[in-house]
Design a protein around this nucleic acid. Structure first.
Length: 457
RNA sequence: GGCGGCGUGGCCGAGUGGUUGAGGCAAGGGCCUGCAAAGCCCUCUACCCGGGUUCGAUUCCCGGCGCCGCCUCCA
């Protein structure tokens, strides 16, 4: 069974399932006002690997991930560029899912939008007001954090400690709030801002409300896992939870947070710092599997540096895997090696130890390569290569890592590869070398072996 | 000011109280190959500093230095 670090308890503990065999996961998705950066890419891949792995083990996973399509950032950009805010959200959402597809990330089962849930949010906020957990000020409706007994569960700090000053930081925003940590549920609209009707006046929902309403609506109370980046732990997730608790509802049973992508100096990549690397640039410049490879090789709770050096290293390692896949094509099908799969599951079940699992993958590839060499040499009946090859493919499936390059090789290229083999057979090496050089110049990877020439991108 | 994390070889990045500290990439040598490529084998280089606990610490504890995160929009 999968054991995962839980932010609430700070322990690695078993991911309990509300319903046996079924896993319900809520992932905080993007605010669609800018192109995705590397940090978003990490998020996409971390949870894609989680979901694929769980499905690979036979579990029925439902992943819900929202799209925040109304927010101050969106409004600000719309005003700055003098265009309708919906232009921005629809375009950014398209770019987001396009990037996910290029990353090989499966689309979530549900992608609810904040704008589709405004009525439900208004209803929920009304309940919070009715029970006295929320109150009206002159600019909106706020949740009183003091009405939530265990507020700070995810932050692991008491309200007093959070407020304690020091350094040059400012302590929350105050305005008309009863407590500095109280947060806005409903923002009353200023002139020309997008708005929806509510009992407290036209306005829009605060960021922290949509996820509560949507996760409870689609997954129900006590769903299994809520996840997102470490920066969402507090205040976003704390505040989501506060609303659920104030409503008397059971919220997520387990909290998972992944670490940041950092720059060369180890600083968090962040839009506000301006040190982000556009995810699309990486996808444009490199093999689209490269980023997944990089994420697999580090642990999801450790910061990871993305630089030209390790990107190139990942490219090279993928080339090795592709070569393996190409030569393994001729290996007969077999049941995957049980020991390898068992070691793989042990690693993954231990808080998603993908670095260990990836090491196992490479190790298995090496063993399989050796076994293929040995089988070529003596035609042994008790060949171990097939089961190792099958195990490699299983791991790659669970990782969501496609091997083999993928591009179809045109007939004309295959014909030239065949001509190359004929020249070699005729010991006409000058012709053979010329053919190989031509193909390589055109960007093909050419591998001539005893059993023939393979060509791929 | 509070809470938390990190400091490993040429680079990235795991991990552990003990004869031999993953894996990837890079480098060197070899095998294979008509020659390459791919593959396989071998080799090289590391645990921030100072104390302490211990038979023994990179791993545990204390102190120091350096870096980072959250407490504010943020994956």
């Amino acid at each position: 069974m999968l054991h995962l670090h839980d932010t609430a308890t700070r322990q690695v503990r078993e991911l309990a399932m509300r319903e046996p065999g079924k896993v319900s996961i809520y992932l905080c998705g993007p605010t669609v006002y800018a192109p995705p950066h590397l940090g978003h890419g990490r998020q996409n891949i971390v949870y894609d690997v989680l979901v694929r792995y769980l499905r690979w083990t036979g579990l029925d996973v439902r992943l819900v991930s929202n799209v925040t399509d109304i927010d101050d950032q969106i409004i600000n950009r719309a005003v700055a560029e003098d265009r309708p805010w919906q232009d921005i959200t629809t375009k950014c959402e398209r770019v987001w899912f396009d990037a996910q597809q290029r990353l090989g990330v499966a689309r979530p089962d549900d992608t609810p939008h904040a704008t589709e849930y405004v009525d439900e949010m208004v209803t929920m906020i009304g309940q919070l007001v009715d029970t006295g957990s929320a109150y009206l000020t002159d600019d909106g409706v706020y949740l009183s954090v003091e009405s939530v007994d265990d507020y700070g569960l995810l932050a692991h700090q008491s309200l007093d400690d959070m407020l304690a000053g020091g350094g040059d930081r400012t302590v929350f925003g105050a305005d008309g709030k009863r407590h500095p940590a109280d947060f806005v549920l409903w923002k009353l609209a200023k002139p020309d801002e997008p708005s929806w009707p509510s009992p407290w006046g036209d306005g829009r929902p605060g960021w922290h409300s949509e996820c509560v309403v949507m996760s409870l609506d689609l997954l129900g109370e006590g769903f299994d896992l809520h996840c997102g980046g470490q920066d969402l732990r507090f205040p976003h997730h704390e505040n989501e939870r506060a609303q659920a608790v104030a409503l008397g509802k059971t919220f997520a049973n387990h909290w998972m947070h992944h670490a940041f992508v950092v720059d060369g100096e180890g600083e968090k990549m962040s839009k506000s710092l301006g040190n982000v690397t556009n995810l699309l640039d990486l996808l444009d410049q490199y093999d689209q599997r490269v980023y997944r490879m990089l994420m697999l090789q580090s642990h999801y709770r450790s910061p990871v540096k993305i630089g030209e050096g390790n990107v190139e290293a990942a490219v090279a390692s993928l080339a090795g895997l592709d070569s393996f896949a190409a030569r393994a094509d001729s290996v007969p099908a077999a049941d995957p090696d049980a020991e390898v799969l068992s070691a793989f599951r042990a690693a993954m079940d231990d808080d998603l130890d993908t670095p260990k699992a990836t090491a196992l993958l490479f190790d298995t590839v090496r063993r399989a390569n050796s076994a293929i060499d040995a089988d070529d040499a003596d035609d042994a009946d008790d060949a171990v290569a097939p089961s190792l090859v099958a195990a490699v493919h299983e791991i790659c499936t669970a990782f969501g890592l496609a091997l083999g390059g993928g591009d179809e090789v045109p007939e004309e290229i295959l014909a030239r590869a065949a001509a190359l083999d004929q020249a070699r057979a005729a010991k006409d090496y000058a012709v053979a070398d010329a053919l190989r050089a031509e193909l390589q110049d055109e960007g093909w990877t050419v591998e001539t072996t005893k059993s023939g020439t393979t060509v791929r991108r």
